[in-house]
């Protein structure tokens, strides 16, 4: 009984150790778009293994950077940030790298990045022809590096891309391309009958990869087709 009392007293002391969490919850948001400087259009991205936006919060040392994933359509948003000054830079992207910038994030801060994509995919067309899905397109390079490969990627999700596909048809290029050259990629449907089931809808997306370290593919928006 005595032991019990002592334990109870000790426990009540232990309760005093607890304080209410005195930190405010994250109250700020950062969002924006990645925009092609020339066309004004969004620069299409990958949802996994894609472009990140690196956020480094000021006032802490050492500090681990946060990496924000960019959505497929080229927009991004993080609505759980603490109000503070941050160094912000898109990294490992599919466009010519841009400088980092210091911004003060509070409330709903909007920050767009105007960039030059490594490759623009022009005159893109994805159509079903008989038992095939055929993609045709041209490439316009904005850097002098080689184009490593082009590909047509298929998935049941709209966020299809090179790292998210159930079927891929790729063509290794490893050369600087002629802007007038028309590329053609074909997915043969019967030989993929288990993955691309007849009567179902799938998303098809054309991508092209520049030969730059850590570069990501450039894309056009995915096209939905029934097979």
């Amino acid at each position: 009984m005595k032991t019990y009392k002592i334990v109870m007293i000790l426990l009540s002391f232990a309760l005093y150790a607890c304080e209410l969490d005195n930190f405010d919850m994250p109250d700020a948001a950062l969002s924006g778009r990645i925009i092609d400087a020339q066309t004004g259009e969004l620069v299409e991205q990958d949802i996994i293994r894609g472009t990140n936006i690196e956020l480094t919060e000021h006032g802490y040392d050492p500090v681990a950077s946060q990496y924000l994933i960019v959505k497929n359509d080229g927009t991004y948003e993080n609505s759980l940030l603490f109000s503070n000054t941050y160094t912000v830079q898109p990294v490992r992207g599919n466009f010519i790298p841009v400088e980092s910038q210091e911004i003060n994030i509070s409330g709903n801060t909007v920050l767009d990045f105007t960039v030059t994509p490594y490759i623009r995919i022009l005159d893109a067309s994805v159509v079903k022809e008989g038992s095939k899905v055929v993609a045709t397109f041209r490439l316009e390079q904005n850097v002098t590096n080689n184009v490593r490969k082009v590909g047509l990627y298929v998935h049941s999700e709209a966020s299809v891309g090179e790292p998210l596909r159930i079927v891929a048809v790729e063509n290794e290029i490893n050369a600087v391309v002629d802007p007038n050259q028309v590329f053609t990629l074909e997915v043969d449907l019967p030989s993929n009958s288990a993955t691309l089931q007849a009567g179902e809808q799938y998303f098809f997306r054309i991508g092209a990869l520049i030969d730059v370290g850590e570069a990501k593919l450039n894309y056009v928006p995915a096209v939905r087709l029934g097979v």
Partner: peptide, 13 residues
């Protein structure tokens, strides 16, 4: 066949 109930795997750099 594909191994049943295994997701596609992607290695991150």
């Amino acid at each position: 066949s594909f191994v049943p109930n295994v997701n596609p795997r992607t290695f991150d750099y």
